[in-house]
Amino acid sequence: MMHPGAQLRAVIFDLDGTLIDTADDFIPAVQQLRSECDRPPMEAQRIRSSVSNGSRALVRIALDIDEEAPHFEAHRQRLLTLYAEILGHHAALYPGVAALLQQLNDKNVAWGIATNKPREYTIPLLEKLGLTPASVVCPDDVAQAKPHPESLEKGCRELRCGIREAIYLGDHLRDIQAGQRAGMYTIAAAYGYIESGDSAHSWGADAVAQRSEDLHGLLFPQEEQAYV
């Protein structure tokens, strides 16, 4: 798909693993859950790479159980409680993202968030970090979460832009699928929470950001070319 270029009016970000590095909040919550279940600490990187898959996936890897196991939901709720207690304590914007958001504001390019993270955790996290996106779409706000395109379509309406005037960035295959189904230009965040054996280059995104610092050049390629 053609890059919006000069017609770019909005950028929509996935949250965990794309806009904000939240893994350092999740890791101690998962380790505490394991401790309460008489299990030793697990490798932090394994937790980090699974954050984008949500609480169910984290419980599965934390306790090595499936969703049909007895007390699975009780364990998931306990994990969410532990996460809520630490939410935002260690989370931070990825390198270069604060400057990027300021540049978007300076260029009058609206920005928003489309995430599968429930609103009860998303809004406190954004407040903790002092972020004020023009649109925040959570699974609570739509009938079908990503990879369905509804979140992105709603985000574009709230940002008052056309689908082809916006770019979506995400660190999971479901993000790129949602963007493609909506008809948006997509950028895969290879610096995010990618599981072992997976590759952001295999998702079919229009572009791939190896580092968060690369996002400016991918969003505004005409400026990068001006320096060449």
Results as ranks from 00 to 15, higher is better:
Ala134Arg: 13
Ser49Cys: 12
Cys37Tyr: 15
Ser50Asp: 04
Ser196Trp: 06
Leu131Pro: 04
Leu63Thr: 02
Thr18Gly: 06
Ile187Thr: 05
Arg39Val: 07
Thr22Ala: 11
Ala182His: 02
Thr132Arg: 12
Asn105Val: 03
Leu19Val: 05
Val142Gln: 01
Glu150Val: 02
His90Val: 00
Gly88Met: 12
Leu82Thr: 08
Val59Met: 03
Ala182Phe: 00
Gly162Phe: 01
His90Lys: 14
Gln210Lys: 08
Asp141Cys: 02
Glu224Gly: 12
Glu165His: 08
Glu153Arg: 00
Leu82Tyr: 11
Ala57Val: 06
Leu169Ser: 01
Ala74Gln: 15
Leu215Glu: 05
Leu126Met: 09
Glu73Asp: 14
Ala10Lys: 01
Gln7Trp: 13
Leu129Lys: 09
Ala166Leu: 01
Ala182Trp: 01
Gln31Met: 13
Ala98Trp: 00
Ile86Val: 15
Pro149Asn: 08
Ala99Glu: 15
Leu80Lys: 10
Ser202Val: 08
Ser212His: 03
Ala205Val: 07
Cys156Val: 04
Glu213Asn: 12
Ala10Met: 05
Gln102Ser: 15
Ala189Asp: 01
Asp175Lys: 04
Val228Gln: 12
Leu129His: 09
Ala62Asp: 07
Asp38Ser: 15
Leu218Trp: 06
Thr18Ile: 09
Glu195Trp: 03
Ser202Ala: 15
Leu173Ile: 10
Ser35Thr: 06
Leu33Tyr: 09
Glu127Leu: 11
Gln45Glu: 14
Met184Phe: 01
His75Tyr: 15
Tyr185Glu: 01
Asp66Cys: 08
His90Trp: 02
Cys37Asp: 13
Thr115Phe: 02
Ser55Gly: 15
His89Ala: 15
Asp38Leu: 11
Leu215Pro: 03
Ser52Met: 08
Gln102Pro: 02
Trp203Phe: 10
Lys107Gln: 13
Glu68Pro: 00
Ser212Gln: 04
Tyr193Leu: 03
Arg60Gln: 14
Leu215Trp: 02
His89Ser: 15
Gly217Ala: 14
Ala57Pro: 00
Leu215Ala: 07
Ser199Asp: 15
Ile176Asn: 01
Gln7Pro: 06
Gly204Lys: 09
Arg181Met: 07
His172Arg: 07
His216Glu: 13
Ser202Asn: 12
His148Tyr: 09
Gly17Met: 10
Ile167Thr: 04
Ser52Leu: 08
Arg34Trp: 10
Arg119Phe: 01
Val208Ile: 13
Pro133Glu: 06
Asp141Pro: 03
